[in-house]
Write a protein that binds this DNA or RNA. Sequence first.
DNA 1: ATCAGTTATGTAATTAGTTACGTAATTAAT
DNA 2: ATTAATTACGTAACTAATTACATAACTGAT
Lengths: 316, 316
Amino acid sequence: MNFYEKAGKKAIGSRLRQLSDRIAEDATQLYALYGTNLHPKWFPVFYVLSQGQEKTITAIAEEIGHSHPSVSKIISEMSKQQYVVEEKGKKDRRKNVVRLSAKGLEAAEKIQDQYEDVGNAIEDLSAQTNHDLWKALGEWEFLLDQKSLLQRVVAQRKLRESSLVRIVDYIPEYRSAFRELNVEWISTYFKMEEADYKSLDNPEDYILNKGGHILVALYRDEPLGVCALIKMNHPEFDYELAKMAVSPKAQGKNMGWLLGQAALDKARELGAQKVFLESNTILKPAINLYHKLGFQKITGYPSPYERSNIQMAITV
Amino acid sequence: MNFYEKAGKKAIGSRLRQLSDRIAEDATQLYALYGTNLHPKWFPVFYVLSQGQEKTITAIAEEIGHSHPSVSKIISEMSKQQYVVEEKGKKDRRKNVVRLSAKGLEAAEKIQDQYEDVGNAIEDLSAQTNHDLWKALGEWEFLLDQKSLLQRVVAQRKLRESSLVRIVDYIPEYRSAFRELNVEWISTYFKMEEADYKSLDNPEDYILNKGGHILVALYRDEPLGVCALIKMNHPEFDYELAKMAVSPKAQGKNMGWLLGQAALDKARELGAQKVFLESNTILKPAINLYHKLGFQKITGYPSPYERSNIQMAITV
DNA sequence: ATCAGTTATGTAATTAGTTACGTAATTAAT
DNA sequence: ATTAATTACGTAACTAATTACATAACTGAT
C-alpha cells in the first residue's frame, strides 16, 4: 500500500483519516481491556467534565471542538448509563448543565491508570520518531486557522492561471473581441449608450488616433479581457481608464488586476500624472479592484455616461 | 479550544480525526469550485485508476487501504455516473475488473490542474512548518506496523503494574496464601496429590527447615503470588523451583517473571549451581515463562508427581 | 469427480461524526 | 411593552467509512 507515496501530499486528508481510524480502533479495544463501560468516543467529553466543574452542552462542544449535537448525543448516552447528571440552568433555563455523577467520578478515578499507560505508550512511540507528529498537527491547525486550505488552493490557482495570461497591445484582429466583451457586461447591468457605440465600433478613430491606448489580455491566446486608456482633454487628468471588460470565462485568473497594472504602467510610460475613471457602485468587484490598484474616490466632475455614479482617480 | 493542550498526547486520535475532517470539508468545496462532478471520497479510487490500467475491486482496496465494501460502493457510484466501466473477469468470473471510461479519462485529464494547485498549496503550507507532518505520519505508520498501539499500552501497563509488585521472604502470616494460591491452580488443572498436601499444609517443616526458601509476591501489600526453592538431595541439582502460583487477579503484572527472577537470585545467593523444575506441557504460559527465565528441557529423571510430564533445569 | 476450503464481491447493519432545522428562552431595540 | 434577533439545544437526516454476513466462483486434495 504505497498509495501515499504515489499520490503525494494531496492525499494527506486520506492519510490522516486512516491513521486516526487505526488509532480509534485500538482505543476501542483498550477500553475493553481496562474493563470500563466507558465508550471511547465519550473521551473528550468525559475528560473535560472530569477536569473541572459542571458545564453546558455548548461550552463542552466549544472546548473539545465538536458540534453541539454531537455533545448532546454523547451526554444523553452517558446520562442513560448514569455517568453524568443533567440539570436545567438556574438562571437560563435553556441551558443543560452537566456534571459527572458519583459513578462518573468513580470511573474518572479508575481510568487514571489507563490514561497514564496510554500517555506513556504514546510518549514512548513519539520518542522513536524524528518528526514530531503532535507539534506538526499543532502547526497545521495554526496555519489553517490563519488561512484555510480552500483559500490557499484558490491562491495557487490564481497564481497558475495568471501565469497563462499575457497582456498585449491592441491590433485590429481584436476589434470584435473588444466590442463583444464590453457589450456583454454593459448590457448585463445597464443599457448601451450612444457614447459606447461610438468608441466600441471604431476604437481606432475614437481611442487610438486620439492618443489613447488599448490593452488586450490573452488566456491561452484567446482574448478574454480588454481595457482602454483614453486621452482626456482636461486640466487635471491625462487619461481615463475605461472599457475594462473581462469575460466570465476568465474569472479567478487575476485578469482584471493584470490589465489594470498594465494600463497604469502604460500611462506612466506615456508620461501621465493622473488617471481618472468612472464606474457604478453596484459593480462591487470592479470598485474593489480599482481600490486595490490604488484609485481613490473623487467628486464633482460631470459625466457623459448615465450609468456612472462614482468617479475615481490615481496619481501614477 | 485548548483541549489538546490539557488532555495531552492521549488525545492524539481525536486530534487527527479533527484535522482530517477539517481538510475533508475543504476538499468537498474544492471539488465544487473546480466544477467536476467527482465526489471527493472517490479520490483514492479515481486516482489509482487514472494512474494505471484496469484493476479489480480488492486490488484497489488493498492499494488504497480501504475495505473492499467501501471500494465496491464507490465503484458502483462511479459506474452509475459512467466514470468507469465494470467487466466480469475473463479467466475468473468472480472478479469485477474496473477501468476508467472515456468520460472518466476526460475527467482525469481535467482534474490535473486541481491536483497541481492542491499539491502546491499543501507544499507551500508544509514549507511554513518546522515539523514535517507528512514524514511524521509515515513514521507513525511504520512504528504501528511493527507494534500496535494496543500492544504498546499493554507493555506500559505491565511495566507500571510490576512496579507495584514487591517480592518478600515468607513469614508465617503468608502460610494460608501459600496454600490457597497453590490449591487454586492445581485443582483447576489437576487433582491434588499426597505430596502437595504435605508441603502446602506445613511449609515450615517440609521446605524451610530442610534448607529451602519461599518467596511471596505482594501486589499493593496483598500476597498474590508465591514460589518455593526446595533443597534437593541429588548429585546434580541443588534446588527445585516449585509451588509457583500466581493469582488470576494478578494477571499481566509480570508476577511470574519477578518471582522466578527472585528465586534464581536467591538460589545463587545460596550457592546453588543448578536448579531443577517439573511441570506439565498443558501449562503453556508457565513453560513459556520458564524458558524466558533460562530453563532448558532435560530428560530422564523420575518424578514423584503424576502431573509432571516435562522437566527443566538451569545453571544459575 | 467431488467436496472442503479459499477468494472476490456485494448487501445490510452499525458507527461517529456532520449539517439542517425547529422550538423555547433570553436579550436588544424600538 | 412589543417585536426582532440571538442563543441553547434537541431531533432528524445524511455521510463516509466500517464490520458482519451471504453467495458465487475457483482451487486443491483426495
